[in-house]
Simulated assay, not measured.
Amino acid sequence: MKPSIRPSVVSAFTPSGQLRASINLGNPILARKDATTGAPAGVSIDLARAFADRLDVGIEFVVFESAGKSVDAVKAEQADIGFFAIDPLRGEGIRFTAPYVLIEGAYLVRQDSPLQDNAEVDRAGRRVMVGKGSAYDLYLTREIKAAQLLRAPTSPAVVDAFIAENADVAAGVKQQLEADARRLGGLRLLPGRFMVIQQAMGTPASRGDEAAAALSAFVEEMKASGFVADALKRHRIEGAIVAPAAA
């Protein structure tokens, strides 16, 4: 039996009469276009549908090619929920749940690059390509002190932009970088990771404490029930893990 959600909370999530879910196609671990139908598919879409079912409402997907635009849609209340990497700069105007998935961020270089370790990236004269507005962009903007950051329009465009602009390093979702390395050849990932992305759900802060609590409870239930793990397996996602239960 599904836990009941108060009518006032349902109304808070659905001012348009249905649930509008902001979907970012820039992170292939969580969302992509179905090759046959062109419709959005993936872990984020499965969670959005499950939450709409919990509210007993219809769903509309508001689809974007980058994380920044997806975040902006929720902040502007053009969408009622979204799926984001937790970052301090995104906290204003959005109430986040605890993470449901953890994703590794990695660096990619050319096969003949002298770089062998993540610690060697942040040096004067080095140029690092990252997806504009992505969680990696936000993180590296704070952390990089000596290297220069370059920005591709979206995360999936990072490696092509890295090559086109002859940058030294590409930064992003480990699985995306691995796929691009196989596609293009002559590239390799530096060992390990430079950060771990905490992927969470969020809703406009204006929807209130009860709505934020209901969304958080939903995420915890989806982790504990095996829903998130099953979705990762169903969509053949490797390298991402289910986040631990919130404290």
Rank of each mutant, 00 (worst) to 15 (best):
E77D: 08
E77Q: 13
Q78R: 12
Q78L: 13
F84A: 01
A85L: 07
D87G: 04
L89C: 04
L89F: 08
R90I: 14
R90W: 13
G91R: 12
E92I: 12
G93D: 06
G93Y: 10
T97C: 14
Y100D: 03
V101T: 12
I103K: 07
E104R: 06
S113K: 06
Q116A: 11
Q116H: 13
D117V: 13
E120H: 04
V121I: 15
D122K: 07
A124F: 10
R126S: 04
G131T: 04
K132Q: 13
K132R: 13
G133W: 09
G133P: 08
A135P: 00
D137G: 05
L140H: 06
L140K: 03
T141L: 06
T141H: 01
R142L: 14
A152L: 06
A152T: 10
F162T: 09
I163C: 05
I163Q: 10
D168C: 06
V169G: 00
A171W: 08
V173T: 06
V173K: 02
Q175F: 14
D180P: 04
A181L: 13
L187P: 00
L187S: 00
M195N: 08
V196T: 11
A200K: 12
A205C: 03
S206A: 08
G208F: 09
D209G: 12
A211M: 03
A211R: 09
A212D: 00
